[in-house]
Simulated assay, not measured.
Amino acid sequence: MADPKDRLTTVQASVERPARFSRMDMMAAGLSLVWLVAVAIYVLMAPGGAGGPLGVVMTLLMVFLPIALIWITVTTLRSVQDLRAEASRLQASVESMRAAYAEAQAQPSVERKLEEIERATRSAETVLATFTSRRDVTLSQPSADRKAALITPTQAGAADDQPALALGTPAEDLRPPLSVSDFIRALQFPESPEDREGFRALRLALEDRTVARLIRAAQDVLTLLAQEGIYMDDLKPERARPELWRNFAQGERGRGVSGLGGIRDRSSLALTAGRMREDPVFRDAAHHFLRTFDKTFAEFEKNATDSELVDLADTRTARAFMLFGRVAGVFD
Rank of each mutant, 00 (worst) to 15 (best):
E172C: 01
R316L: 08
L128N: 10
T132M: 09
D82R: 15
L61M: 14
M45E: 11
S133M: 10
L174T: 01
S143A: 14
G55R: 05
T138Q: 11
T154A: 12
F331V: 00
I67C: 04
H287F: 11
L128G: 05
S307V: 07
T10F: 10
W245S: 10
A85M: 14
A201E: 02
W35A: 07
Y231R: 14
L225N: 10
G55I: 05
V127H: 09
R134Q: 11
L60P: 00
T317E: 03
S22F: 05
L44E: 07
P142A: 10
A240S: 15
A249W: 03
L271C: 06
P53C: 07
L114K: 15
I263L: 02
R78F: 05
E197T: 04
S267D: 14
S88G: 07
M232C: 06
T132A: 10
G168I: 01
T292K: 01
T75C: 07
V63H: 01
M62V: 07
A28V: 07
R78Y: 04
F297Y: 04
D284F: 02
D279H: 04
I67Y: 02
T169F: 01
S133E: 11
D173T: 04
V80N: 07
L165I: 07
S93V: 00
Y42K: 10
L309P: 03
V34N: 09
G51V: 08
T305F: 02
A144E: 13
R283K: 10
R135M: 12
L225C: 12
F21H: 09
P108A: 09
I72G: 09
A320I: 01
A129S: 12
D160I: 04
A158Y: 00
L269C: 09
R146V: 13
A164W: 13
R277F: 08
T223C: 05
R246A: 14
Q155A: 12
D82K: 14
L150T: 02
T223E: 13
Q107F: 12
T305S: 15
S268V: 04
P153C: 03
